[in-house]
Each structure stands twice: as structure tokens, then as C-alpha cells.
Design a protein around this nucleic acid. Structure first.
Lengths: 288, 288
DNA sequence: TTCTAGGGTTAGAAATCCTGAGGGTTGAGA
DNA sequence: TCTCAACCCTCAGGATTTCTAACCCTAGAA
């Protein structure tokens, strides 16, 4: 009968959000990444929440954490609530800035595919402004404030297949006549697409036992720049090097073009209303 | 095409909550009261949100604020989301402390009606602990963390009618023989029930033109205490003075008992599961 | 006019929140 | 078995957010 907690203090919203993210994503590190904070901050929030409730929500294990049964019972409601909240925020944003379209995409796509098209898009729809955010992986569309996503992947809305083949500057190309010559030049690669060379070699020259060597870049656009400057041979993704091929800054010294089982996809975060700015941009990008 | 806001920064949850409360309640002062902060804090939150969105959400008028059209369009979603969030929190609390029942009630009821019953309730259900929070008005049940509400009002779940009549200590009663004698003794009253004397006189002695005078208390329980000490005559609410009448500390010197058009009501914030602690307490309080 | 209710400011204090460094534990692969 | 890579924890600052308190301002009511 004791008046246990004299005042049922209300729970900090941020702690709730941290718990929800950690529970949904199955770890504090992942939750921190989604929320844009360090895992330590998530730890603190979860601990505060547990202290407030007087119950353990996670079982700490050496490798990762596991939701307690209690946490599992409450999670669905919490996820639903935060989804609804995120949706409300999206509505608020859309109402506040109806002519702004937020696009999430890979850094490489942003710089090499999207950016060159923006001037024309501006001419075609001058009243619309575009906001581009680069990230390594498609965001959680129920939460992140984006209207369109542009990534490589499977499924609907493919703008183009992902076709790869070696490219280099014309001067470097002069030294290359057959696939075996690749052993003699630096083979540039991108950290996130580290498999490119193996995949291409496996399809284009399965019998050749070449081990491509060369610098690894963390930004594909940088690797492209280096290739243009004659630093070596890069595995080119058609959509991303097309402009340089047209201009002659890069050439494809030889051979087989390998089509990867994925495409450049553009999709909307939410149903798109006819005539909305998002629809205009989506239609325009799909057409060009 | 400018990358207008370089980063679509995410909106502070607390600012959203402040806006939602202000919009729903129609004022910053009311929102501050609900959230337990000063109006100035609400002002700051709303302003931060407006700055973030780049839009006005309220039209400031000299007397109060009014939602803009944009605010009105977004409000329902936002209210729904926070309702869902509150529900999730309630679930979390209930799961974390299933044997704790939170009751919201008037200070007077807490002290004079509920508190005397608690020892017996403890005997009847020793595994349940009760948390009592006193407040002037029933809380918003979709938001506030309570399981049961106990207030005067209309509707279902009435435990008793609200019957009022003058009470005083036996020594004071000796000097009172008829209603007119009230003019000669202090008439205690409570600030929140300031009408009590007028209502009772209007029904009990409509022709008498007595203007009751005496100290006004902000806590009814204090007024009761004073009446017991012989400080004057108090308009007693039957449920709240019953114990003192039984013990003889207070007596009803005369007359008519007036039944107000309201009762002492007990209701649950949410559907109550059979066998739950809330159900046990609700049933027990309704019976006693 | 004066009073009252409701908002807007501001500075400074309080609480919250975050980072960054250091430490553990475990499982996988060399 | 050893090392590495993932995780998580703690802790102490310090940055940021949030709140209060006291002030001013306006419009309508008494």
C-alpha cells in the first residue's frame, strides 16, 4: 500500500526512442547508428529507462544484448507508436515545404549520376528544390525523412541495369591489349564494391588467374577521378562512368561487359500523389 | 536545386510534444500545465519547431494563440501518434509493475475517503500496492499514467451521491438551533467548492437571506480539521465527513441534506482485465 | 482606467545528453 | 592457442538542451 514512487514521473521520450531502436535493431551499436549517437549514449538511455521502470529490458550478454520477455511483449506497441510519430513528422515536413524533395542515395550515385542531371531538372521544374543526402545503405523509410531513394538493388523501379567493365584514361589504354595485361597496371577499386574485379574476372576471363592489385578507395567518385588522371584501371559501373566515356576522359580498353544481378533503383518512401513535387522528380529521373 | 537544409536534421521529440499539447489544448499555458513546465518553456519549444520547419504553426494573438491552417492539417496525425506512444508507455509500466495500481483523485478524497480505507484494502489484497496522486481535475486518460480515477462527476461508476449539509464540532452545535443562527458563526468553505453554501441555502432555506462568512481554505481536508477543532461550521460532503460523524468529532446540527447532481465516481483509464490488480482494487473500492 | 489573462522576452541555473577513452567478454579464423 | 573483430560497459568531462523566474506587452472586461 506504500505510495511506492511518490510521483509516477513521466518517461523521457528520448530514452524510449533509444530503447525502441535498440530493441528493433537488436543492438546498441546499431541503434546508435540509426539515431546518430554513440553506443554509449544508447546504453545510458536504456539504463535510465530500466531504472525508471525498475525492470531489466535487455539481458546483457558478452556478444550483444537480447530483449527480455517483458521487452518483447512491449516492443510492437512501441514500434507502432514511433512509426506513427515519424509519419506525422513527415506530414509536417511535407506541409511545411511542399516543393522540396529529399533524396537519399549512395555518395557515388549522388556525385556521378544525380549531380550531373540536376541542372536539367532545375530547368524542367524550377519551382522544385532538391535536397540530397548521401549514405551507404538505404534508410529505414518508416523513419528517415526522405521522399525518394536511389540505390543499387533488386525489385521495382529499376532505371538501368548495373553493367561493369574496366575503364581507364586513353593514355593507360594504350598499354592494354588483352585481359592479361591487367596484371601490369594498378587496378583501382572501391571499398564498398570490393568484389567488382573478382566478379568481372570470373565472368569475363574465368580461366585467367589474375590477381588485380592496386589502391582501394573509400569513395568511388575519387577512384573515378584517379582513373581519369591515369592512375590505373577501374572497374566501371556504366551508369556512373557514362559521362566520362562520352567525353572521352575514360575509355573501355576491352571487352566483356558483365551485367550484375541488380539495377539502379529509384523508389518512393510513401505513396506518391499525382502532381506532387515528388512525383514530378520521380517521373523526370526515371525518364532521363 | 540548392541543397537547402544541408542535413534534414531530425526534430526534437520534446518540441513536437510541446506543439502537440499546445495545439490540442489551445494554449501555451494549458500545454505547460499538462506537461508540468512553465508556459515559457512551451513557447521556446514551439518556436524551435517553427524555426526548424521554417513555417508558422500558430498565429499569435494578443489573447491566446490560434493554429494556422497548416497546423490544423497536421494535428490529428500528431495527436494520434502521441496517443499511441502514451498507450505503449502504459503497457510498459503495467508489464513492469503489474501489482501496482495508480489512482488519481482529488486531494480531499485522497485524504478523507481513500486513505482511511487503505489499511483494509491492504489486508484484503496484500500483494497489491497502491499509488495515489492528488490533483484538482481528472487527468487526460489517454496520456496520464493512471489506472483508476476517483472524482466527483456525472456518469457511470458512481459509488455514492454527493450529499451536503452543515457540520461542526459538538461544542459549536450547542449554539446552533436553526438555519438563521448560521449568521453568527464562521462558515468555513473550500476554494474549489465555493458554491457549496449558496447551493445548500438555496435548497434548504430559500427564503432566508443569509450571507455566510468565514475563512476560505484551499484544502478541504484542512477545513474539516478546523471544523473538528471548533473553528466554525463547514458544508460537509457526506462521503468526506462520514468518519468524523461516526466518531462524533463532527455533528450535523440541523437539517436538510441536499443531494447535488453528481456523484463520487470511480472509473478505469482502460479496459480492465478480469483478475488484474486494477480490477481487484476497483471492485473492492466499489463494494466498501 | 485598472485589472486580468495570455504571450513574448531574457539571463542564468539545472538537467539532460553526448562523446571519447579505457576495459571486458566472446566467437571466429589463422 | 592466439589474435582480431564485435559487441557491450563504465566514467568523467563538457556541450547542449531545457527550465525557471522575472520582466514587459497587448487586448478585453470590470
Amino acid at each position: 500500500m506504500t505510495v511506492s514512487p511518490p510521483k509516477p514521473r513521466d518517461i523521457p521520450l528520448n530514452a524510449l526512442r533509444a530503447f525502441e531502436a535498440a530493441a528493433r535493431l537488436g543492438g546498441f551499436a546499431a541503434a546508435g547508428a540509426e539515431l546518430g549517437v554513440t553506443p554509449g549514449a544508447v546504453t545510458a538511455h536504456v539504463k535510465a529507462l530500466e531504472a525508471e521502470l525498475g525492470v531489466a529490458l535487455f539481458e546483457r550478454q558478452a556478444k550483444g544484448v537480447a530483449l527480455t520477455a517483458l521487452g518483447q511483449r512491449c516492443l510492437p506497441q512501441l514500434v507502432g507508436a514511433f512509426d506513427a510519430l515519424a509519419a506525422a513528422v513527415q506530414l509536417l515536413r511535407a506541409e511545411a515545404a511542399p516543393r522540396v524533395v529529399h533524396i537519399a542515395t549512395l555518395p557515388a550515385i549522388a556525385q556521378l549520376w544525380l549531380s550531373p542531371r540536376l541542372p536539367q531538372l532545375r530547368l524542367a521544374a524550377p519551382e522544385i528544390s532538391i535536397s540530397i543526402t548521401a549514405m551507404e545503405a538505404p534508410p529505414n523509410l518508416k523513419r528517415a525523412p526522405f521522399d525518394l531513394c536511389l540505390f543499387y538493388g533488386h525489385g521495382q523501379g529499376s532505371l538501368a541495369e548495373d553493367v561493369i567493365f574496366p575503364v581507364c584514361s586513353p593514355s593507360v589504354a594504350d598499354r592494354l591489349h588483352e585481359v592479361a595485361d591487367l596484371a601490369d597496371v594498378p587496378c583501382l577499386s572501391d571499398a564498398t564494391w570490393a568484389q567488382d574485379w573478382q566478379v568481372w574476372l570470373g565472368q569475363a576471363a574465368p580461366e585467367a588467374s589474375i590477381l588485380p592489385r592496386g589502391p582501394v578507395f573509400s569513395l568511388y567518385a575519387l577512384a573515378v577521378e584517379e582513373a581519369v588522371n591515369g592512375a590505373g584501371v577501374l572497374m566501371g559501373h556504366e551508369a556512373l562512368v557514362a559521362r566520362h566515356l562520352e567525353r572521352g576522359a575514360l575509355v573501355a580498353p576491352f571487352g566483356p561487359r558483365v551485367t550484375l544481378p541488380r539495377g539502379l533503383r529509384l523508389w518512393a518512401a510513401r505513396p506518391v500523389f499525382r502532381g506532387s513535387a515528388v512525383e514530378v522528380v520521380q517521373r523526370w529521373l526515371s525518364k532521363v
